[in-house]
Amino acid sequence: MKLCANLSLMFTEVPLLERFAKARACGFESVEIQFPYEESVEDLVKAKEAAQVEIVLINVPAGDLMTGGEGLASVPELTEDYSQALDLCIQYATALEVKAVNVLAGRCLDAEKETKYWQTFEWNLVKTADALVEHNILTTFEAINTKDMPGFLVHRAEHLWSLMDRLNHSNIKAQYDLYHMAMMGENLWHDLSTKSDQIGHIQFADMPGRGEPGTGGLALKQFFQIIEDSTYGGYVAAEYKPTQQTEETLNWMGPRVMPS
């Protein structure tokens, strides 16, 4: 597997710009960042180049989503705000030479508006994919469990596959998060075995605590083997909340770990 580390959740013992070197010292040649926008593009480029790692994925800015709001990508009244967020994302994504950009659907807090929110999200997702294909950057979208994020629009595996079928866009694939899908009781064996051609990025954490492998009940080693045996050729990102200093939680990497 092509492993990468999520610098938004891991190595948080140090500031973001120092996490690149930390990750590299632990054997990661690739990283991802949820929202890199608090740092300048120039500083991020310097940090990644100094550490000799690549940034494989970032998210489009999501407005107030992380503080309990609905976000940007599905709210009909915020299409202009989403367009501005996408412009900013493209500036970062192209400068950082990322492989993929993830679009967070966000919440719908009024069930009566759900149909319109789905329409808006699909429109914004296609708009994003059309814009990014010119830069050879893949567009992904993910399902997030409704226990951690109540009201999240895309929250079932079926949402991923049905939307892929409806849009049938060559530059859109699903981002499949083992933690979120396990929290929703989805059939991870089935999805990883039969849907690998529709998956553009994979993330993992143990569950239910979202800690490192071995802190919960998810058979991650088995899932890693399924991924390796499948046709999936993308990155597999550790996106967990370490229960202790990050360097002490990497035993699951085995011989990949490099001496610090």
Rank of each mutant, 00 (worst) to 15 (best):
A51Q: 07
A51R: 09
Q52Y: 08
V53W: 04
E54V: 12
E54D: 13
E54S: 15
I55E: 00
V56S: 08
I58P: 02
I58A: 02
N59H: 03
V60Q: 00
P61G: 02
A62Q: 05
D64S: 05
D64Y: 04
L65E: 01
M66Y: 13
T67V: 11
T67P: 02
T67F: 00
G68A: 05
G69C: 05
G69D: 04
E70W: 02
E70Q: 12
G71K: 04
G71D: 06
G71N: 04
G71S: 04
L72R: 03
L72E: 01
S74R: 05
V75A: 06
E77Q: 13
E77A: 15
E77S: 14
L78T: 00
L78G: 02
T79A: 09
E80H: 12
E80P: 07
D81S: 15
D81Y: 05
D81T: 09
Y82C: 07
Y82S: 09
Y82L: 03
S83L: 13
S83R: 14
S83G: 11
A85N: 05
D87A: 15
D87T: 15
L88C: 06
L88R: 10
C89P: 09
I90D: 04
Q91Y: 01
Q91W: 00
Q91L: 12
Y92P: 09
Y92I: 06
A93D: 03
T94V: 15
T94R: 10
L96K: 09
A100Y: 00
V101Q: 02
V103C: 01
V103K: 03
L104D: 01
G106D: 01
R107Q: 11
R107P: 10
D110L: 12
D110G: 07
D110T: 11
A111T: 13
E114A: 14
T115W: 00
K116V: 15
K116R: 15
W118I: 09
E122Y: 11
E122D: 12
N124T: 08
V126A: 06
V126N: 09
K127V: 10
T128C: 04
A129T: 11
A129Y: 07
A129V: 08
A129H: 11
A131H: 09
A131T: 13
E134N: 14
I137R: 00
I137D: 05
I137V: 12
L138R: 10
L138Y: 01
T139V: 06
T139D: 05
